[in-house]
Design a protein around this nucleic acid. Structure first.
Lengths: 333, 333
DNA sequence: CTGAAAGCGCTTACAG
DNA sequence: CTGAAAGCGCTTACAG
């Protein structure tokens, strides 16, 4: 492995000049620059990131903290953010937490991130004030997707709004008994509470404030959504529509309804939130959120903050959109 | 941010002793070690990874090269490998290539990885001999999932075998006109060819060597599988069964069949490979492959190679298993 | 435009 | 058991 010294010798200049030439800094003559570039290419020189970091104080890496990478929402955002960050020359360090509280503590304490990344991208987690402070102390800019935290850049949808939109759609179809399948996420994902709030608010607005018995926990998985729907549909007076706080839970609910002998949407309507990649396939009505855009936007917020630390960090809400497909229809009777 | 010097002063020892104590090396008295640990905790000291790497020559990071992270197979493997590697104290650097040939070249050339990681995990790609040589030149051990490369550790399923198993299931149900929906992946994923080979071989073995006109390209996406199925089912003499080289394509095929007025499985059977997380929900018959196990196994191969560079690198094939669900049934007529 | 030199914060033989 | 010191490979003022 060649070092900067080898390149310097080959080009007949000092290592300082090699460094400048390779970084495209001014105050290097064109002739020298060409000689250096040629020598570097010839020797297949790659600068040592460790040495560069140590000397410059920058790591050229961004940490991504997410509860999972193997769920549609997170995978899509990681993918789009990675693409944007790599374009800008940054590496991506992945920290997926799973459901382990200990891992979460480690990640947010900064032990894992400190001195290792220039900035942090947090996905779909709702940090406590303490955690937020700890992560901020890591140093670089932090951007969060799916929630907002004072002092951080953020990009998210309006969860309460999205939920109200879904419920409004069902109300418009004549439904009055509308069940909710929500989260109860051990990792404090931001959305469950807000989406439930929206659900309740929209029903209260039309004089249906009593949702007791109509709410079930789905844990944001297909299986959880399935189980929750089974429970709600087994009620003596079952709901005629189910609103799930995510498409994955909604898909589980559709399947549960069909297996229990309900026709969808004739006997029971189902709506989700996301517009998951499989939603069209399952003909699922949903409130779509733009994931690629959120990932790219968050990445760009970090990049901007990195080049211009003075600029205030933006908090953006991206719009959602009702996508009507085949799992919702007029209330029966 | 405190440095090793701060800890040394606080504990009243040299930085060499701090380093030893913190790494749990021998030749440090218990009393000293405790004093150092206390001082480090007090100062919230975190060692600089850059400095440590530069001095030790190890990065404590593993690079993961994958074409995508937002597809079930890759996301699941990344997730499980990450968990295992982090347990061992390694960071994960993510390089997702997308479909960009230029990105692929960069990743495999080693420019991105050299001096940056101790080992590399390659997922679902079939490197050319040239690319393999370039990646090997990066230095550390390389493990590959979903293919095998001489000189690398590998873990995969037997793709031809899995395909034959799927086709055998269909033959056993009396099907004779069996369509194939395969890959044509711009990134040279390993599997398409092998799975097609298995499909052809199994048919040839029962005297049905002519598959011309029965093969279609699905690109490993739901939409691609849908389009491929539309084409095959529009044939004058359409197949009575479809074998898709992945569950995502199979799901698309099921939907396409239903929308075209075919009952599944009465009119047409569909089988995939994977046991995708949504496969049960869609009641899809498939040949299951263990993804979590493959990710963990590959991670462990790298860890072993890192601690014991002498040991020969294993090439493991993990078993697959036919999972019969509701999308396959007896051939009509 | 270019170079000599300090310094980034560690690890690791080498002495003792 | 402990410390002084060299060295890892860069970047970046500072001179010239």
């Amino acid at each position: 492995m060649s070092t900067i010294k080898d390149v310097a010798e080959a080009a007949g200049v000092s290592i300082a000049t090699v460094s400048r030439a390779l970084h495209g800094l001014p105050r290097v003559s064109e002739a020298t620059r060409q000689r250096v570039l040629a020598a570097a290419a010839e020797l297949r020189y790659v600068a040592s990131p460790s040495a560069a970091s140590l000397a410059s104080g920058q790591t050229n890496a961004i940490g991504v903290v997410a509860p999972f990478v193997n769920r549609w929402y997170f995978a899509a955002i990681v993918h789009s953010a990675e693409e944007r960050l790599r374009m800008a020359g940054y590496d991506l360090l992945l920290y997926s937490l799973g459901t382990d509280a200990h891992e979460r503590r480690r990640a947010f304490s900064g032990t894992l991130l400190r001195k290792r990344v220039d900035g942090v991208l947090v996905l779909g987690l709702h940090p406590t004030a303490e955690e937020a402070a700890a992560l901020s102390a890591v140093g670089g800019p932090v951007a969060i997707v799916g929630a907002d935290v004072p002092g951080w850049a953020s990009v998210r949808i309006d969860d309460a709004d999205a939920a109200r939109c879904a419920v409004r759609h069902l109300l418009g179809l004549g439904h009055r008994r509308i069940g909710f399948i929500g989260g109860a996420d051990p990792l404090h994902t931001a959305m469950p509470a807000d989406r439930r709030t929206g659900y309740r608010a929209e029903l209260a607005a039309v004089g249906l404030p009593d949702t007791s018995g109509l709410e079930a926990v789905g844990g944001f998985t297909v299986g959880g959504g399935y189980a929750a729907a089974v429970r709600l549909l087994a009620l003596p007076d079952p709901p005629t529509a189910l609103f799930a706080a995510s498409d994955e839970m909604a898909m589980g609910a559709v399947q549960a309804a069909r297996r229990a002998g309900f026709r969808v949407p004739e006997d029971v309507s189902v709506i989700g939130i996301d517009d998951h990649e499989m939603a069209e396939l399952m003909d699922l009505t949903t409130v779509a959120q733009p994931v690629v855009a959120q990932g790219v936007l968050a990445a760009e917020m970090i990049l901007t903050a990195l080049t211009d630390p003075e600029r205030p960090l933006p908090a953006v809400k991206v719009p959602t959109e009702l996508v009507v497909r085949g799992t919702t229809g007029p209330a029966p009777g």
